[in-house]
Simulated scan of single mutants.
Amino acid sequence: MEQISTMEKLFTVIDNTATILKEELSCSYLEAVAETGENLFQGTILQEEVSELSKKRLEKEYSQVKLERHSVEEIRKAYQLAALKGMKEATQPNHQMTPDAVAIFMGYLVSKFTEKQKEFTIFDPAVGTGNLLTTVLNQTGTKDVEAYGIDVDDLLLKLAYVSANLQQHSIQFYNQDSLQPLYIDPVDVVVCDLPVGYYPNDIGAAGYNLRAKEGHSYAHHLFIEQSLKYTKAGGYLLFLVPNHLFTSDQAADLNAYLKEHSVIQGMIQLPLSLFKDEKAAKSIFILQKKGIEVNVPKQALLVDLPKFSNKAAMSGIINQIDAWFKKEK
């Protein structure tokens, strides 16, 4: 029989306690995951309406966990696994999570682009549950990183906030529409799994260069423009974009805007096997905001990733990417 990993044990406690709280508080499983995460972080049961019997059951479960014995990655994975379970139960289409392997790979890329910086600021304008942002932060090592996350969905933001606390990351979160004026200063790095689709607020879109000439504008185009606005000159932006980004009816406008304001550093196509439907396939799109010392790479980083499980092929790709960084950076 396989030994249960420490991450799985932690997930089991989160899952069991969330299930108890879901019944006691008459809330969704996803809301209960946020509540139980708060309890774990505070080391006490915060919900006053919980019955004495359930309180004893919760205390028994929590007593099995010593957070300081877990790595930040174990905590992140266990908590996100519970959030993922909750999202599958919910039917809201915006409740999607960046696949772990992709988030880890984006973290590797951010660490490469910020290699020479002792400290930097980072921002995710569609932070969701915080999985992408905290995965990236977990790979920055000892660097001093100031992080920001914004999301319009208050439940997802609460999950992100609790997850960040459990992993001991200091992230400033804002619950707002990221396509409206923001409360943050420009940052060194933007990471974002772009929300794909139409932005329903035509009045809010009116101030954007990439607004549609008629009808609703593409939210993912506006997110790119907004992100560039809140990036320092010379800063990097790493987006998860749909593969059809440059074949849409508004692609010419996007192309012209990117040429004016940024330098394309690379496009890394993710393995199609990651996506149920080929039409939903995505790539990592890497931009650098134009600035005085920004040079156009002799050759952009163009890569088709193999399956992440193919270790030999992935190792070859990593060597290829490392060689590109030595040559271009």
Rank of each mutant, 00 (worst) to 15 (best):
N131L: 03
N165V: 00
L194R: 01
I184N: 04
Q288W: 10
A281Y: 02
N175L: 08
Q176Y: 00
Q288S: 07
E59R: 14
G204Q: 04
Y161K: 15
E119H: 11
F223S: 01
E146Q: 13
V303S: 10
D304S: 11
A256R: 09
E89I: 12
Y108F: 15
S217F: 02
K112D: 14
V190M: 03
H70I: 00
F113G: 04
K9F: 03
L109D: 06
N310K: 06
K311C: 01
L81Y: 06
R69N: 13
H95R: 04
K289V: 11
V162Q: 14
F239S: 06
D154R: 06
L132S: 08
A83Q: 01
L159T: 15
E225V: 02
K282I: 03
E49Y: 10
D188W: 02
Y62H: 12
L46K: 11
W324S: 09
A323Y: 12
L81H: 05
Y161R: 13
I4E: 14
T44F: 00
T6L: 01
A256N: 14
T247H: 13
Q269A: 08
L58D: 10
P125H: 04
K85T: 12
D144Q: 04
F223W: 00
Q42D: 04
L46A: 08
N175T: 03
F123L: 14
N295W: 09
G316M: 02
K298P: 03
L155V: 15
K85H: 10
P125M: 07
D253G: 15
L287K: 09
E61N: 13
G234P: 07
S26L: 05
H220S: 03
E2C: 04
E59H: 06
K326N: 08
H221F: 14
G86T: 09
S51R: 10
V196K: 02
D154Y: 12
V50H: 10
E2K: 06
F113P: 03
R69E: 14
M314N: 05
V127K: 01
E24G: 03
V294L: 12
K56S: 14
A82Q: 10
G197P: 01
T98I: 01
T19P: 00
F275Q: 07
I203N: 03
V33A: 10
T44E: 15
I284Y: 02
W324L: 07
L194M: 09
I268R: 09
F308D: 07
G207T: 14
I150Q: 09
Y108A: 06
L67D: 07
D322M: 08
T17E: 00
K60P: 01
L10M: 14
L81G: 14
G316P: 00
G234S: 12
Q64H: 12
L272M: 11
D253V: 14
T19R: 05
K289H: 13
T142V: 11
E74F: 08
L159R: 04
G207L: 08
P200V: 12
N310L: 02
